[in-house]
Design a protein around this nucleic acid. Structure first.
Lengths: 189, 189
DNA sequence: TCCTCATAGTCAAGAAAGTGACTAGTCAGT
DNA sequence: ACTGACTAGTCACTTTCTTGACTATGAGGA
């Protein structure tokens, strides 16, 4: 049930609309958690019913009205509770890992296509995170920001996201190199 | 539906019992996918019903009988199909990331406890993967094994697992450093 | 003018994953 | 004699996640 805590964490620093929260959890920019709009709205409704977040209607002109949510005192207590319990470590769970696991029994060229796609995706996502980090830092250099900046939490998680995608990119590169070298060695024989 | 393909991939190189497959997917040694015994057995049953794996009973003395499974031609075709479609990239989805995201609103000492736990876990798991890699390599050095060893697939996924846990460990270390430095700076002021 | 994108959501259904409990025999140690 | 760990599984249930479709309005471009 970490989505509920992820939503709470997202709302800590500013009041956001449900729509804005869904954007934060969207595929491209999910810097610390990912979820679809339907999940987010459902979770917000549950959180509001339980009094962990409070919503208020904001009437807008030129576009649909929206509801802005903020975390209540009870919501913060819930988060503190969550943080006080041991976090369960996550597992790597990638389709591509399954495909590479079977590499010795599959067509190398097909696998290299998959790796190339994943490489490009990882590269793009790492660049996006890098850009987000730059914006969070503002004019400060990193060491300065980490020591004195407001809100390092989102910065630190974003950095993990960037490094994760960099690691994915590098792994894809290495695996492609290995597969190509073996292919060449095989043809030679 | 990647568990089914993960199970197929696990059975590619050798005939295994359901129990052995559950061990391969267990928390400690899940080098490319993770699942509980119940999930594994259920998936094996489904795969057998669909003719993607074939099981045979092996009578044992001194311990319960077991069923050994192997991948059929249809099963391999299914895996090839799976590999020919684009793999969907996974997201980082860690409780600890949610906790760190909220770092600016939570107690630093509590968070450092969580980070210390995760650090130790990551370190242990990375060491386990390292040991597995050593065993897979045997007497060959890595470059030699990657070029000429049999079955590099499992080796490459295991390496990703090791690097993932190393990255987790390093991130935990860095985050703790940042949080401690801010704590010290705050007390000083 | 039509088409698409962005805002701001909602509903229903299904697949996948996780939890807890339980059977049953063997072996090693206290 | 009892306890706990290992082998080898199974049943039932719940939560979580994903898929797909659908409602509105307004702005900008071809």
């Amino acid at each position: 049930m970490a989505l509920r805590h992820a939503v709470l964490a997202a709302l800590l620093d500013e009041e956001l609309s449900g729509y804005q929260v869904t954007k934060a959890f969207a595929a491209g920019v999910a810097n610390f958690w990912h979820a679809l709009p339907q999940q987010v709205y459902a979770e917000l409704a549950r959180l509001e019913k339980e009094g962990l977040v409070a919503g208020r209607e904001v009437v807008q002109e030129g576009r649909p009205n929206k509801r802005l949510f903020r975390v209540t005192r009870e919501g913060l207590a819930e988060l503190e509770d969550f943080a006080s319990a041991a976090a369960k470590p996550a597992f790597l769970r990638e389709d591509l890992l399954v495909q590479v696991q079977a590499a010795d029994h599959l067509d190398t060229d097909v696998l290299i296509e998959r790796l190339t796609e994943r490489y490009a995706f990882a590269e793009a996502k790492a660049a996006l995170f890098e850009e987000l980090l730059r914006r969070m830092r503002g004019s400060l250099d990193e060491a300065e920001f980490l020591l004195r900046g407001a809100r390092v939490g989102p910065y630190l998680t974003c950095r993990r996201g960037r490094d994760f995608e960099r690691a994915n990119r590098d792994w894809c590169r290495d695996v492609m190199e290995v597969l190509r070298a073996r292919q060449a060695a095989g043809e030679e024989a």
